[in-house]
Design a protein around this nucleic acid. Structure first.
Ligand SMILES: Cc1cc2nc3c(=O)[nH]c(=O)nc-3n(C[C@H](O)[C@H](O)[C@H](O)COP(=O)(O)OP(=O)(O)OC[C@H]3O[C@@H](n4cnc5c(N)ncnc54)[C@H](O)[C@@H]3O)c2cc1C
Length: 599
DNA sequence: TTCTCAGTTGGCGCA
DNA sequence: CTGCGCCAACTGAGA
């Protein structure tokens, strides 16, 4: 392969054929890696679907739908520039070398991805292609800054553990780079040929191989794809949800996928200058029904349908229009939180678990699959918590404070289950699931990192009343309770049996009793956390806390009608719970690939 | 080394 | 409805 190696594209020299590998960064704007590929005589944009991710167990229907819609949108945008998207099927390490050989590519470009799973995958691809004489180039365009540079600028080569100093560090670096220019109106396609049929998704009705690859062609610039290609049904195409074995979604998407949708949403939000400048995150409402009270850009930023740099610069222009808030609560502050977690996920090992994670407190979480299941399914008996979990399941999205509420409830607040379990559920269900953001925020909420005031616990009853005293959000997502008046909407178990019947929902049969006595259990959990922190100061393996080993502890301050069940299944009293001593994590192999970066 | 201070977004009772 | 102090007290950063 030395001849091929000699033919590899070199920096600055024009490549013969370049593959641009889309993973995140699913956009044409601000895409430096795509621009680089466009310097070649022909560019082949591809997306690789690794079947490993294709399962509702790993990537829920909302996120998979978002991805497929995004790929459709990307393909349409490429076709308008005389190109098209080839969606390939298989492991990137196998598919990309074959595709490169097929197309005679001497250059592969992609957007850098700093998640551990992606780094490992990309390094494997890079070395495989290097052996075949294909040069690989990556470009930073997902985050505002190159996380390597940010980390290097921090004390000891690590980013600060607190947000304030982190932002100060960024300010010292200066504003993020300006977005790259758009790709050319007609993307290069010298000697273009279609993707290898064996690697693509094709219609079953006819076969692509009949007349060979030559059957396919590229659209002329601006030519509508469907009209131009109606005669080529067997052409490689973007799979549907059904192709991938997903059941039809039960709910319309809250966020339709795609660059166009993302840019449209960003423009709509930024056009409200006063709203943008007055944005204060803690004051936004988690109980909105319908359009979120925040930007709703998270899935677009996660998949890179919208460039964070473009968002930042357009936001800066809006902020220039008058007095505005500042981080951490401002809209810019939100983007910097994203930066914070991305940088931390890159800088610290084992960021997605407690064991071996240098920023994470070691805590002897309980392990009760039944409690986890009820939380996940939205049947805890706390209407606010259940409404949030049901919105999450239905739409794949929750307001930030809704995420706070359910994450606190599952972990340090009430159920005392590991944040890792919660993060795994979120990762499956969220349309915007992002490895670093998800794990980092779960550590925050569980008071495992960044935030340590564990005595501040969200009440599953009182908290939602701030923004929704009438309980309309609960009625939307927990229809069993639709007829309950506001006085009982967050505590339906307090209504008399007679009223429960009258309002059409008997607690205990039509809707569950509360899963725990919140007041009692949150006190116990505070004591547990306090002990865990003390153990942290005087190192040793994490132990469960002998607090609350007396069942009596549960009756302290018990809520009216605290369900008998609350004590029974509430994990309490087992002071001898196995301390997650650390190293015996489940599935070391799962840890290696535990990452839906692309899907 | 030791201290001080600030920290996105708690709940509650009270004025 | 809003603001305030209390609860009991955590951390990382920086002086
Ligand atoms: C337990 C938990 C898990 C989370 N998991 C994810 C996740 O997997 N993916 C994800 O995008 N966000 C996650 N978040 C952060 C946050 O809740 C969402 O980013 C936000 O609710 C998305 O809505 P938005 O785009 O309207 O936010 P906006 O308030 O409009 O913010 C704009 C953008 O800033 C970024 N941002 C905002 N808040 C945060 C934050 N706390 N941390 C990091 N970035 C932030 C996001 O990219 C967001 O789209 C999580 C939060 C919690 C508490």
């Amino acid at each position: 392969m030395s001849a091929a190696a000699a033919a590899a594209a070199v920096p600055g020299r024009r490549a013969k054929a370049a593959i641009h590998w889309f993973r995140k960064g699913l956009r044409l704007h601000d895409n430096p890696a795509l621009l680089r590929a466009c310097e070649a005589a022909a560019v082949y944009p591809v997306f690789v679907i690794d079947p490993w991710f294709v399962s509702e167990e790993r990537v829920g229907v909302n996120r998979m739908r978002f991805l497929l819609e995004t790929l459709e949108d990307l393909d349409a945008a490429l076709r308008a520039r005389s190109s098209k998207l080839s969606v390939l099927r298989g492991r990137p390490e196998e598919v990309l070398p074959r595709a490169a050989a097929h197309w005679g590519a001497d250059l592969l470009t992609f957007e850098a991805d700093f998640e551990p799973y992606a780094l490992q995958r990309d390094e494997a691809v890079r070395s495989l292609l290097a052996e075949r004489g294909v040069r690989v180039e990556s470009f930073v365009s997902h985050s505002l800054y190159d996380p390597r540079g940010v980390a290097a600028a921090g004390p000891g080569g690590k980013p600060p553990l607190s947000y304030g100093p982190f932002v100060k560090l960024l300010r010292g670096i200066g504003p993020p780079p300006r977005p790259a220019r758009d790709p050319p109106a007609a993307m290069p396609s010298e000697g273009w040929k279609p993707a290898p049929a064996a690697l693509t998704f094709t219609d079953n009705a006819t076969t692509a191989s009949g007349t060979g690859d030559g059957a396919s062609s590229l659209p002329a610039s601006g030519e509508p794809a469907s009209a131009a290609h109606g005669d080529r049904l067997a052409e490689a195409r973007i799979p549907s949800l059904a192709d991938l074995g997903y059941a039809p979604p039960e709910h319309a998407p809250l966020f339709p996928g795609g660059e166009q949708e993302g840019l449209r949403r960003m423009a709509a939000k930024l056009s409200r200058g006063d709203w943008v400048r007055a944005f204060a995150k803690p004051k936004t409402s988690p109980t909105a029904v319908g359009e979120p009270d925040t930007t709703g850009l998270s899935p677009y930023l996660k998949f890179g349908c919208v460039s964070s740099r473009r968002f930042w610069h357009e936001l800066a222009a809006v902020n220039a229009g008058g007095p505005h808030g500042s981080p951490p609560t401002s809209l810019e502050g939100q983007l910097l939180w994203r930066e914070f977690y991305i940088c931390h996920g890159f800088s610290f090992p084992n960021y997605d678990r407690m064991a071996g994670n240098p920023v994470c407190r070691q805590i002897a979480w309980q392990d009760d699959p039944e409690l986890l299941r009820r939380w996940e399914e939205g049947t805890t008996g706390f209407p606010w918590i259940d409404a949030c979990m049901r919105q999450l399941r239905a739409q794949g999205w929750l307001h930030h404070l809704g995420r706070h509420a359910v994450a606190c409830f599952l972990t340090r607040g009430d159920l005392y289950q590991s944040w890792e379990r919660g993060a795994r559920v979120f990762d499956r269900l969220l349309v915007d699931s992002d490895w670093a953001l998800n794990n980092g925020n779960w550590m925050w909420l569980s008071a495992s990192a960044y935030f340590f005031q564990f005595f501040r616990v969200y009440s599953p009853v009182a908290f939602p009343k701030h923004t929704d005293p009438d309980g309309d959000y609960v009625r939307r997502w927990v229809p069993e309770l639709a007829n309950f008046p506001k006085a009982y909407i967050y505590e339906p178990w307090k209504a008399s049996k007679q009223n429960q019947r009258k309002w059409g929902c008997e607690i205990g049969s039509d809707y569950p009793e509360p899963i725990v006595d919140h007041v009692a259990v949150s006190k116990l959990n505070m004591a547990r956390h306090k002990a865990a922190y003390e153990a942290h100061k005087a190192p040793g393996p994490p132990r469960d806390v002998p607090v609350g080993d007396s069942p009596g502890a549960f009756q302290v301050g018990s809520a009216p009608r605290a369900p008998k069940r609350a004590r029974g299944d509430g994990d309490e009293g087992d002071a001898a719970a196995p301390g997650g001593s650390g190293e015996e994590r489940d599935g070391a192999s799962a840890a290696k690939r535990a990452k839906p970066a692309s899907p």
